[in-house]
Nucleic acid binder design. Structure first.
Lengths: 189, 189
DNA sequence: AATCTATCAGTCGAAAACGACTATTGACGA
DNA sequence: TCGTCAATAGTCGTTTTCGACTGATAGATT
C-alpha cells in the first residue's frame, strides 16, 4: 500500500485510456501526447503504471514484441481499476478545487512589471491566445466533421470556453490599464 | 548551478512575497496560505528557499528568535532575484501554456459516468462553484472597500472570471445532456 | 498547578518524478 | 550503400517533493 495516494494527474489519464482498450506504456504516451496533453515524462509514466499495478487497478496482459525491439508489456484495466476510475471521475467533477495555473500565479504580481510592461506582456498573450483559439476551434470542427462523437472531444470544448473567457478578461484589464482606470500604486503602501 | 531550472510554482510565489519585504519561510507559508493559495507543503517550501539561496536569487538577512523558539532565518530578495522575478513574470504572462487542471482531466472521460451520473456530478459541481463564486465575490468586494488597491487583488478577479465561465459552460452542457442533444455513445465505436 | 491544545519553526528519511542513457529499426538523402 | 535522423521502448541514478517527527511556548481548561 503506497503511502501517497497515487494522486498524480497521470493516474486518471492512464485509467481512462485503458478503459478504451489495453495497451503498453509507450503507446499510452503517444496517445496522451496526441490528445494535446502537456509534456509527459516517460519515466514518470512507467513509474505510474507500476504503481497502478501494485494498487491492483491495472494488470499486465502479457507481452509482445516487434522485431528485436524491447518487449512491450500490455496492461489492462481490472475491475477494481474501473471502480477507482469512476470514483475519481465523480469526485473530481463534483468537487471544485482551487487550481493554480502559471498564469494565475504570475498575474498576482502583475504590479512588478509596471503599467507599460504589463500591457505589453498581456497584449502578446492575448495575440497568441487568440491564434491558438482559432487553431483549436478549426481542429475541433474538423474532428467533429469527421464523425467523432462530440462527447469524445468535450474536454476540448471546455478548454476552448476557458481560453475564450481568459482572452476576454485580458482584453478588459489591458483596456483598463491603458485607460488609467486600473492604477499601479507606487511603492510606499 | 542547478540542473533543473527551479520550475516549481512556489518559486514565483516566494520571489513575489520577498518583493514586498524580507521574511522567514514560516511566515511565507502563513501569508501564502492566507492568500488563498492551495495547500503548500512546508518541507517543500524550505527546500525551495534553500534552492533559491543556492541560485543567488535570495539571501539570508540574519536570524532572529522569539523566546526559546527555533531560530528564524529571514531572507531577502537579491538584485538577481528581482531580475529573475521580472523575467519569469513576463514570460509566464506572455506565453500561454496548456495547463491541465483536475477538472479538465476528468471531463475528458465524462462518458464513463453515463448521462445520469454526469448530470448528477456536474450539477453538484455547479452548485458548489456558484457558492464559492458568491463567497469570493463578497470577500473581494469587502477587501476593495477596505481600501486595498485593485491591482493587489487582480488575480482574484481573474480567478472569479474563470470560475464564472466554467459555471456557464457546465450549465450549458448539463442542459444539453438533459435535452438529449449531447448523446452518450454506447460502447462499440 | 497541572494538563491539554493550538501555533510556531524547522529537520530529515522515504517516496515520487525527472531526464539522460541504452539499443534497435525503418526511412531518406548523398 | 553508407551514414544520419527520427521513432520505438524501456531502464536507472539523481533530484525534488513530501509528510511524519521533534520540541518549544502561549493560552485555555479542569
Amino acid at each position: 500500500m503506497p503511502r501517497r495516494a497515487l494522486d498524480n494527474p497521470l493516474v486518471l489519464a492512464v485509467l481512462g485510456l485503458l478503459l478504451e482498450h489495453p495497451t503498453h506504456p509507450y503507446q499510452m504516451l503517444t496517445d496522451l501526447r496526441a490528445r494535446g496533453g502537456a509534456a509527459i515524462n516517460r519515466g514518470t509514466l512507467y513509474d505510474v503504471v507500476e504503481a497502478l499495478v501494485a494498487a491492483g487497478w491495472v494488470a499486465p496482459q502479457g507481452t509482445e514484441r516487434t522485431g528485436n525491439r524491447p518487449e512491450r508489456t500490455v496492461y489492462a484495466l481490472t475491475d477494481d481499476g474501473h471502480d477507482e476510475l469512476v470514483r475519481r471521475l465523480d469526485s473530481q467533477i463534483r468537487t471544485p478545487r482551487r487550481e493554480f495555473t502559471q498564469f494565475l500565479g504570475a498575474v498576482a504580481y502583475l504590479g512588478a512589471l509596471g503599467p507599460d510592461g504589463a500591457v505589453d506582456a498581456l497584449t502578446e498573450r492575448a495575440r497568441r491566445l487568440a491564434d491558438r483559439i482559432a487553431a483549436d476551434a478549426d481542429h475541433l470542427a474538423a474532428v467533429l466533421a469527421s464523425g467523432v462523437p462530440r462527447l469524445h472531444v468535450i474536454e476540448a470544448e471546455y478548454a476552448l470556453a476557458q481560453a475564450r473567457a481568459e482572452l476576454a478578461w485580458i482584453g478588459s484589464v489591458t483596456e483598463e490599464i491603458r485607460a488609467g482606470s486600473l492604477t499601479f500604486p507606487t511603492r510606499e503602501d
